[in-house]
Amino acid sequence: MSTENEWPLWEVFVRTKAGLDHKHCGSLHAADARMAVQMARDVYTRRQEGSSVWVVRSDQIVASDPGDKDMLFDPAEDKVYRHPTFYKLPDSVDQM
C-alpha cells in the first residue's frame, strides 16, 4: 500500500487513573485528531486500562538520533555519584 493514501500515524498515551502520568501504549492511523481519540479509546482502553487518553501526531515528535546513542547515553554509565544513594535521609522521610 502506498503511504500517500494512508491516514497519518498517531502515538497514543493512556493514563490509567487520576494522578498517574500518561504512558505511551502504541500507535494507530487516523484521519484527524478527533478520530484518533475515538479510535484510541476503542483500541487501547477496552479492558479498563484508562481514564484519559492523549494522542499526538507521530511526525510531531522530535526524537534523538539512534546513531548518537553512544555519545548521548553511554557517558552516564560510570557516574554513579549522580544517583542519590549516598545521601542519608532523615528518618521522617519514608519514601524517596
Binding site: 494507530l28 475515538q38 476503542d42
Partner: peptide, 11 residues
C-alpha cells in the same frame, strides 16, 4: 474497513 474500526464495531 480498518483494524481500529473493526474493534470499535465489535466493542
Amino acid at each position: 474497513p480498518i483494524l481500529e474500526e473493526d474493534i470499535a464495531l465489535s466493542n
